[in-house]
Design a protein around this nucleic acid. Sequence first.
DNA 1: CCACGGATTGGCT
DNA 2: GCCAATCCGTGGA
Length: 204
Amino acid sequence: MKPDSLNIKLERSFYTRNVITVAKELLGKILVKTDKDIIFSGKIVEVEAYDGEVDEAAHTFIGKTKRNEIMFAEGGFLYVYFTYGAHFCCNVVTGREGKGTAVLIRAVEPVDGIDKMISNRFGHELRSEKEKLNLTSGPGKVCRAFSITKLHYGIDLTGDKIYILDRPKLPGSKIVITKRIGIKKSVNLPWRFYIKDNPYVSKK
DNA sequence: CCACGGATTGGCT
DNA sequence: GCCAATCCGTGGA
C-alpha cells in the first residue's frame, strides 16, 4: 500500500475555485473509483474546461435542465453525460453553487485495476502495445474502462466511491495549452490542457 | 408527437 | 482521412 502522504483526497475547497485553475491543477492527480473489492485508478493527463456563463460549447450555456443540473451545484460533484448514442463522459463540477462550470476528464494513465480495465474495454487480453495506449486515451474510453455510467451521475467526490487523490502541482512547463477538441461552438477558447509528452493523451 | 444533432469511437479507404 | 453507428436530451408544433 502507498504511504499515507500519497493518499490525501482532494477536498471541497479544491473544487469550488475557478474552473480554469481547477482544470490545470487536476493534471497529475489520481482519479479513483472503488466498487466493492474492485479498484480503478489512473493519473489525469488531459482535461478541458467548460463554462456556461461565456462558453457556447458548455452544456450549461442553455440554462438549467434535468440533464445538466448537477453542473450548477457547488464544486466537487461528478457530472456524467451520454453522447453519440454510445459513450459516457465524466466531468468534475467546479466553482460556487450556480456557476455551471465543469472540467471534462479526457484521458488518464492507468495505475490500478489495469487487467479489469482491459476486459471492460476490449473483452479479451491485451494483444499489442498499441492497445495498451488505447485503454484510457479519450473521454469515452476512460468511462468504459472504469465502468462509469449514468448510475454515477451526481456522486460527491469528497465521498468514498469516486474521488481524486492529491499529488504535487505540475510545473507550468509540463502543461500544454490548446483549443478544445470535437466541438463546433466557441472553438477558439484555449481551454484544453494536457501533460507534455504523456503517451496517454488522446491527440497531439 | 417528432425532428435534430452531439464535449466520440473505431473501422474502412 | 472519412464516415456510420446509435440513443436520448432538447425544443418546437
